[in-house]
Design a protein around this nucleic acid. Structure first.
Lengths: 299, 299
DNA sequence: GCAATTATGAAATCATATTTTCAATCACAG
DNA sequence: CTGTGATTGAAAATATGATTTCATAATTGC
């Protein structure tokens, strides 16, 4: 994080762009001044998943769905003499660790010492690693399969789990229909579940400090014949008779539990599902988004 | 783009070597058979500090203190049709995480998906790492300080951000009072913010695909004199004039963004706050929980 | 010591990626 | 409508990088 003042800006117009910013810093700074086609390139770079260097200008053009010419102009606008210069900078940055590191080198001296945040993240990372290691890949695949084929998906969580459940519901609804968060506002479970049938899937977030309702819910679902997946802590002994058990490492050194693993699993489930469903999911996904757009909800 | 390319390692003369198809695997396997000049190239690659892709054949030649021709021959000996093929493999490997992952993929054919989850988690871990690296520790401390001392804390998020906001609100409320999620159900911002005052803190989740409301909210808050922290993507160009900017790496190879970093930051903020506030926070924290218990909500 | 063989890199050649040009298209003000 | 200026991408021109050739140097076998 940086104070806003520190975000360096290049003087765009006037040709002489002398910025010492990182690559994405430059891109951000000049984003406003760009034409649509160039912005597509900018977007691509700003959210580039891999290492930018190692991609040719033409490849970038292809990925950004624009012409080589646009990429060329883009590079020039950024103040580089040619594409090669940009690639070189990208490479340098990637080898110096984060772009930020490079900025630091030129800007202020080192304030960066492993702080609490870094330590905390290390714990989280460890938990994640262990969580994944503990998940059987066949079972995971089976879960995705179930999420793809189940007529309906029911999702529940209380306390922390409530927000994870909400997140999963929201994301899942982008990929497939008939996804329900239960209980709905003001509903009891009984009312929520009238439409549940054998073969449906339920995902329950049941981490530490469970509420009794979760246990009862799991029991009811099983009686109906709904397949149950629970996301729980590594320590939990009672798996509520669930068919799928996703155990998350969640201990930290601090006072609160770390639920990042559960969050990541939820997200990974979505990704897995999209991959599994292929074009169908993508179609729905973009349909949802464009519906959003049509309603003018985004800027 | 050629179809030709058989990616098979020629088991050269002796044919004995059980070739693993990873790039460095190939190099090692054929090392013995190489001429001195080629070995220099091999050495270079085996101990290459950076990412191999993104270097041109000529650069490699220069670094290995040999000629272009030698590199070309080297590439051929490895079984590639041309330099481009090799670069592509290198890129693939580097993006699949470790070369080992690739090795496995080709080795154990059938066990299809086990790596998807692992690979996804690797991406998430990377994002997390980069996110933290990009956060200035002084500013982070300042944010915690602000969260500790602000009379009120206002939290907002839409879309994905909504659930992160909810999570933060819920957790934060365990640690301190006067935490508000806005807008409340059925409220407009105007109604929600009547009680906002200068010196308050606002945390806005403003990741990709922002809604216009977020921008307006930020503006209003600044006008009131509320200190604003935004959690956003690494690519976002507009930081809404926020005092604190938490940039999260969120890109994945898949169709959806990874918001684990934002989630972890939220959690880390809580932890940081508890540590900062000391006993007070702990007292409140356990008070909340025992109130819960008193109401018989947990099992 | 003297072929025969192999290895080597400078330079020529070839292939491909990048840049530039330019005509078509678009957005918009008059 | 029409004129003006900005934007765009196909294709030509150019630059750059990769491969091959080939004369020479180093090594090997006898």
């Amino acid at each position: 994080m940086k104070k806003e003042a520190e975000v360096l800006v290049a003087d765009e117009i006037g040709g002489e762009v002398t910025t010492d910013a990182s690559l994405i810093g430059r891109v951000r700074a000049l984003y406003e001044a760009m034409a649509p086609a160039e912005r597509r390139v900018a977007d691509l770079i700003l959210y580039f998943p891999g290492e930018l260097h190692g991609y040719s200008a033409s490849e970038l053009a292809g990925l950004a769905k624009t012409s080589n010419a646009a990429v060329s102009r883009f590079v020039r606008r950024l103040g580089f003499g040619n594409f090669e210069e940009m690639r070189l900078l990208a490479r340098q940055e990637s080898e110096n660790g984060s772009p930020v590191a490079l900025m630091r080198q030129q800007g202020q001296a080192a304030s960066a010492q492993p702080h609490d945040l870094a330590r905390h993240v290390e714990t989280v990372t460890n938990n994640l690693q262990k969580t994944v290691a503990g998940i059987d890949s066949l079972a995971w695949t089976a879960l995705i399969e179930a999420a793809a084929t189940a007529p309906r998906v029911w999702i529940n969580g209380f306390r922390h789990g409530f927000h994870l459940a909400g997140y999963l519901k929201w994301s899942l609804a982008h990929v497939r229909g008939n996804v329900f968060l239960i209980p709905g506002p003001g509903e009891t479970f009984g009312e929520s579940l009238v439409d549940a049938h054998p073969g449906d899937l339920a995902v329950l977030f049941a981490m530490r400090r469970r509420v009794p309702a979760t246990t009862r819910l799991a029991k009811t679902l099983r009686e109906i014949g709904v397949r149950v997946a629970i996301v729980t802590d590594s320590g939990m002994t009672d798996t509520l008779g669930a068919e799928f058990v996703l155990r998350c490492q969640s201990r930290t050194r601090g006072a609160t539990d770390d639920h990042a693993s559960a969050f990541v699993l939820a997200h990974a489930l979505i990704e897995g599902l999209i991959q599994h469903l292929g074009p169908d999911a993508r179609k729905r996904f973009t349909a949802v988004d464009s519906r959003h757009d049509a309603m003018g909800e985004f800027g």
